[in-house]
Structures are given as structure tokens and as C-alpha cells.
């Protein structure tokens, strides 16, 4: 699905308006250039802080270029438990996204079958949750009651379906021609077969966008883990990063680095390096999938 987010070109922008128009155009280009700079600079700064000598960073010398480049910080963080946290995050993201997609498809399909006798009931059941929810504490108590505390399922089941994303998938399913499904029914296929053999394969474009949405939100979330996970070895990467931000947990790992390097690696360079490591998967994938994200927003907005 390609969606055109570029407004159709208005004819001959420069000619009308004369000088004031050209001044505006130049100013506009410059302003947008500035915006790109402001957007990228914090990320760039984090990169150069992470590869600079900690002592130089502390003296405020790192702002435009890295100073005394060293990879000691990265060597250091990989000595810690970060690989374990990354492994956890990957596991939560993959498993969580899989559950999300399967559950959302299962939920979306019956809601598109016009002949389904309980369609209105189920649609109402789903829509109510868009406007009202139990809130943080009842959810916490529910997870506790179901015995999910400190389990990986506490990060996956409570958000198994994002109703908003599910509605986007439903829109995609509903856009398939009815005749396709009817002819499959005449061939004796049941709805489960139709869903997995016909409807899902034909909705790949939308579903891949949804995979991205779900995956990014799993990778980035820290709140669920903060609520439900107690055991340190089950922490996702974002909780590790959060702990680095809040407390000076890095310091113990720093001491392990030995006194000789104590100044080359500081809490600040460690934090910067951890930020980069945890963001790298997104930064790498982003340029390739950016347009799918955009198309996802557009499908969502036409749902009304």
C-alpha cells in the first residue's frame, strides 16, 4: 500500500509573489534544515560521548567532535550483563509480537464477516475498551490474581491485543472482496482455513506494518517490566537503561574496569553507550521500513 503524503504540487511556487516569495522560500528551506539539525544532534552527541574519553566529556570538551576516541566504554558495558538483557528484550519482542499478530488477526476476522450473528455484540465489546479501562491498579491486581507476577507472560498477555491496531487490521480484512471468501466457502473451506490461507496472505502489507508497530512498542517498553518483573535476570534492556539513568548502578561495573581506565570510562559515557546499543536495532531498521510506518498511520486514519 503506497500512500501519498506529499501534497500535490501547487503550480509555479516562485513566480507569484516576487521577491517576498523568494525570501520566504529561502527562509523556509533554512528553517527545515535547522529542524533536521536539531532532530539529529542529540543522537549524534550521544554517539560522540560514547566513544570519547570520559574525562574530556566531564570537562565539557565534547560537543562537536569526539575527543580522545576510545572503545573502552563499549568493551566495558559488554563485560556486564547487557547481553543477557538484550537477549531478554529480543525474546519479549519476538514472542510478544507473534502473540499480538495472531490474536489481532483472530479478533479482526470475525468482525468483518457481515453474516456473523454475534458481530454487533463483539464489536461493542471491543469498542468499549477504547474509551474506558480499569486503570493501573486493577490491572496490577488482575495480573497478580492470574499468577503472572514476575513471569514473561506478564509482559505479553495483558497487551495481547491493541484494539487500535486490531481495528486497522480489520479495515484491511474488510477491504478484501466478499466473493473471494464465499467461493472458498463453496469449496468447503472453514473460516479458520479461510483466515490463514486466504485472508492473512492477502493482507501482508498491512500486517507487516502492524508487526513493526507492535515490535517497536515491545522493544521500547519499560513500564510493564517495572510493574511486573522482580528477578534481575529477566529484565529487558530498557529497565537496565532506566536503572543506569536513575541510580549510579554503573559505578560498580566501573570499579571492575580497574583504576588505570577509571577516567576514560565514566557513568556518563556508559549511559551514552548503552543508549546507542539499545537504539541501534531501531536505527538500523528504520530507513528501510519508514514508509511502512507512514502507511500504517494512514490506514489508521481512514478507519472512521
Amino acid at each position: 500500500m503506497t500512500v501519498n503524503t506529499h501534497a500535490a504540487k501547487r503550480p509555479a511556487p516562485i513566480r507569484e509573489g516576487g521577491v517576498s516569495r523568494s525570501v520566504f522560500v529561502a527562509f523556509n528551506y533554512f528553517l527545515l534544515f535547522l529542524m533536521m539539525l536539531v532532530t539529529l544532534y542529540p543522537l549524534y552527541l550521544t554517539v560522540i560521548v560514547s566513544i570519547s574519553n570520559g574525562a574530556n566529556v566531564m570537562r565539557g570538551e565534547v560537543g562537536i567532535l569526539p575527543v580522545n576516541v576510545t572503545l573502552e566504554t563499549y568493551r566495558n558495558i559488554f563485560k556486564g550483563d547487557i547481553l543477557l538483557y538484550m537477549r531478554n528484550s529480543v525474546l519479549y519482542t519476538v514472542l510478544g509480537t507473534f502473540v499480538n499478530i495472531v490474536m489481532s488477526c483472530l479478533c479482526a476476522y470475525p468482525l468483518t464477516r457481515k453474516s456473523f450473528c454475534a458481530r454487533k455484540f463483539y464489536t461493542a465489546m471491543v469498542t468499549v475498551t477504547l474509551f474506558f479501562s480499569g486503570g493501573m491498579v486493577p490491572m496490577y491486581l488482575a495480573v497478580n490474581t492470574f499468577g503472572l507476577m514476575d513471569s514473561i507472560w506478564a509482559l505479553i498477555l495483558p497487551g495481547a491485543i491493541s484494539t487500535y491496531n486490531m481495528i486497522i487490521i480489520r479495515t484491511a480484512f474488510a477491504s478484501l472482496p466478499d466473493s473471494l471468501i464465499e467461493s472458498a466457502q463453496l469449496d468447503g473451506a472453514n473460516d479458520l482455513t479461510i483466515l490463514f490461507r486466504i485472508v492473512i496472505p492477502l493482507s501482508k502489507a498491512t500486517l507487516s506494518t502492524m508487526v513493526l508497530f507492535y515490535a517497536v512498542s515491545h522493544w521500547n517498553s519499560y513500564f510493564d517490566a517495572m510493574l511486573y518483573i522482580r528477578t534481575k535476570t529477566k529484565y529487558p534492556l530498557q529497565i537496565h537503561l532506566r536503572n543506569l539513568l536513575v541510580a549510579g548502578i554503573a559505578s560498580e561495573e566501573l570499579q571492575a574496569a580497574g583504576t588505570g581506565q577509571a577516567f576514560a570510562v565514566t557513568e556518563r559515557t556508559m549511559r551514552a553507550a548503552t543508549i546507542i546499543v539499545s537504539t541501534l536495532p531501531i536505527l538500523i531498521v528504520y530507513p528501510f521500513v519508514q514508509r511502512y510506518f507512514v502507511s500504517g498511520v494512514m490506514i489508521g486514519s481512514v478507519k472512521g
Binding site: W219, L241, S278, T279
Partner: peptide, 8 residues
């Protein structure tokens, strides 16, 4: 992620 943003 919001952790990364606040970190920056």
C-alpha cells in the same frame, strides 16, 4: 524509547 529520550 522514552528511556532513551530522557537519557539524552
Amino acid at each position: 524509547s522514552v528511556v532513551v529520550i530522557v537519557g539524552m
